[in-house]
Design a protein around this nucleic acid. Structure first.
Lengths: 249, 249
DNA sequence: ATTTTTATGATTTTATTTGATTACTTTTGA
DNA sequence: TCAAAAGTAATCAAATAAAATCATAAAAAT
């Protein structure tokens, strides 16, 4: 095996396991500990890992997508504004669907002002946030997607099938006049689609940075969307184009 | 374990519990108190925690850790002991079912030592605890029961129906020679029953205070239970009676 | 083909980590 | 308030790991 190959594999191993010991790597790749140390040294110089006594630890965020925790505090003010606009649409007694995501999580924080909602959410953190509320909380089953804390997969979809809700509040990564609402993950897209189908009114939550952006998977056409809630920094020309298709709040 | 890994875990523990004692950490990570103090010192230098006499406190409040925290601290040492016994029964690659509850939550904290488990749990907090792990996490849907953070109801039961797991770790509020395993809540009992049905091996986790106690709803007969894991304070006569029916660890 | 460079493993030297021990400090409660 | 208990810091020696050095073998360049 090429030395450079080995280093690539070591990097992958460290990233996958979050850390690795020199001995472990030496055994696994059948080279001496000296060689492993030299490899780790190189990888450290390149900024790919951080060395530690006895081995190395992965540098977070290099190869991984930004996680929920990192995203949580991005554009916090915008998210709160969007949440406050969204909450205006909700009335006590309703059944609402809340998509997983940081913007909808901001909305869930505003639900304290109500007394009796039924909240269906595939966001595990949203459910926990609402534990102290008087609301009924319903969670579709599924596989936990760690990056977004969303429950996804066929089970989640099937479960939603049997529901009917007044409103669905759905997050989006891209909103575009032609491509509609898009998101980077296929399984999440399917869940979002299902959520939209089962609600009388579909409301998309997205800060201004998501507009004129297209990501991998199409979730909804703009015709299927009733309202889009965004912050006050949305470009006026973009807004004028879209407003002919959907309500923009 | 790499020293740096240990420090990362200590930081996580302190953040999750909001504080931690030196002795507690020393026991949990099986290192001397000197080492723990040096670790805490390092973490303090990095600005990650604040030290205090006897231990350390978290600097940043964790984003999602609501009110059930208080209950979590009851009989913490016993729960950790039970969790450590339970973890001995688990092997990498297995599919395990984890009931909701504080004792099983303690077990989930110990699952970091594995690399590849499939964990089915109806405990929302347990799922979140495992977000940073490499394991596959599956959640049955259902209604969120706020007091215990358990997902319950027919949806959860139906979902479990389609599963097959090696082991089910189930919490209990009462264990009695005649009444068997009991719990105070009917819907939770149904979920527990289903969990037991779908696992090859049924393991009950209960501290000594739960023995010779009968609560409202019967979950399982002792014949249906393979093992009971408890702490070291179980009354010897009680143990002798039960040991003829089930393994007591 | 021969020199030069590079990679590797073995060996020795140096540094770090750790638990135990002891002296010191803080906390507790009588 | 003062003494016992609990906790911390400082120090030491053993164990473990890293760095430095060296010899050799494999590649690369000439």
């Amino acid at each position: 095996m090429l030395a450079e190959d080995r280093r690539a594999k070591i990097l992958k191993f460290v990233n996958q396991h979050q850390s690795a010991k020199v001995n472990e790597l030496s055994e696994k790749f059948e080279v001496s500990t000296s060689t492993v140390r030299r490899d780790l040294q190189k990888l450290e110089e390149r900024g790919d890992i951080a060395r530690a006594h006895g081995g190395a630890v992965a540098k977070e965020g290099v190869s991984f997508e930004p996680s929920y925790i990192e995203k949580e505090h991005e554009q916090e003010a915008e998210k709160r504004l969007i949440a406050q606009k969204a909450v205006e649409l909700i009335e006590d007694g309703e059944t609402i669907i809340l998509d997983a995501g940081t913007t909808t999580a901001a909305l869930s924080e505003e639900l304290e002002q109500f007394n009796d909602l039924t909240v269906v959410t595939n966001g595990v953190n949203i459910a926990l946030e609402l534990v102290d509320s008087p609301h009924e909380i319903i969670i579709p089953g599924g596989n936990l997607k760690k990056r977004t804390l969303a429950l996804v997969g066929p089970v989640a979809e099937d479960y939603l099938e049997g529901l009917n809700a007044e409103k669905a509040f759905i997050g989006a990564n891209g909103i575009d006049l032609d491509a509609g609402v898009t998101t980077p993950d296929l399984v999440e897209a399917n869940v979002k689609k299902r959520m939209a189908e089962k609600a009388k009114e579909v409301i998309i939550l997205a800060d201004h940075s998501k507009f004129n952006t297209v990501t991998l998977v199409e979730v909804l056409d703009l015709e299927q969307v009733d309202k889009i809630i965004t912050d006050d920094d949305l470009d006026e020309t973009v807004k004028k184009e879209l407003v002919q298709q959907v309500d923009i709040l």
